[in-house]
């Protein structure tokens, strides 16, 4: 064979371009479908919050907390739980599983821009956030007559969607540090106590004082307070303060994720 018939020469001569917008769209579409079809994920993210609302929302509905009816309070915080679950599991369990399978390795070898992988997971978690808020809004309206003005609802959705970021970072840190089999169990062990202590299952004001003192050390508490503030709750602490703490948590989790990633880099391929 002579070199001029070799494909490498001809391929380089006509540089075709790939459609990056389509690439990101497909990555997001299939990230969403991948998890939507995984019942363990879609049920725990979408069905559980609604189920908890049916149980607790109707039992505590007539009380108030931070100036909100508990019916409205729990609608917001169960949506926050759904957002946290979606972000933590998509990034934590997802990254751990995809590393374990070798799918991640295949993507690292492919010319996929790494940002596509993370953008897709983030957008997927935002889509699940919108779905869980929609489901809870309908449930709360039908059962408890809770209704929000459209601009309030949009502000709440925006806050919830932004909340994907710190918990995606948390998930990422665990996803690179844990093995594919242990990740889901460990994340449950972290998520449940964190969301409970943060006043997302039962209003923070109803929790024992020592739990109330513990809550500010957890990112879920600050996220919950921001979401409640979005529909006009009487805030505990300032919005700026909560934002600052969440930004700090996000940065710390990203640093931890980077360290875990570096440590892992030489290992998954032996």
């Amino acid at each position: 064979m002579t070199t001029d018939t070799v494909r490498s020469a001809s391929a380089a001569a006509s540089p075709a371009r790939r459609d990056l917008l389509r690439l990101f769209a497909l990555e997001t579409k299939y990230e969403f479908l991948k998890l939507w079809r995984l019942r363990a994920f879609s049920i725990s993210t979408l069905v559980f919050p609604v189920m908890f609302y049916l149980i607790f929302g109707s039992s505590f509905g007539r009380f108030t907390s931070q100036g909100l009816s508990v019916a409205a309070y729990l609608m917001v915080t169960y949506a926050a739980v759904g957002v946290i679950n979606a972000a933590v599991f998509a990034f934590g369990a997802g990254v751990a599983a995809e590393r374990g399978q070798g799918w991640m390795m295949l993507k690292r070898v492919s010319p996929m821009p790494p940002s596509a992988y993370f953008t897709a997971k983030t957008l997927m978690a935002v889509m699940f956030s919108a779905l869980v808020l929609l489901a809870l809004t309908v449930t709360a309206f039908l059962l408890q007559g809770v209704h929000l003005a459209l601009e309030t609802w949009i502000a709440l959705l925006g806050t919830l969607a932004a909340g994907v970021l710190p918990f995606a970072a948390l998930g990422l840190a665990f996803g690179y540090a844990l093995g594919p089999n242990s990740a889901p169990a460990v994340l449950n062990l972290v998520n449940l106590p964190m969301t409970f202590v943060s006043g997302l299952y039962i209003p923070i004001t109803q929790l024992p004082p020592f739990v109330q003192h513990l809550a500010p050390f957890l990112p879920a508490y600050h996220f919950g307070q921001l979401a409640l503030a979005a529909i006009g709750a009487r805030p505990i602490g300032s919005v700026a303060g909560h934002l600052l703490v969440l930004a700090g948590f996000t940065a710390a989790f990203l640093v931890a994720a980077t360290v875990a990633y570096r440590r892992d880099e030489g290992r998954t391929y032996g």
Partner: peptide, 16 residues
């Protein structure tokens, strides 16, 4: 990377 394809020793890709 755009000129390379690879079949590696992997245990799988997403099942769904």
């Amino acid at each position: 990377k755009v000129r390379v394809g690879a079949m590696l020793q992997i245990s799988g890709v997403p099942a769904t």
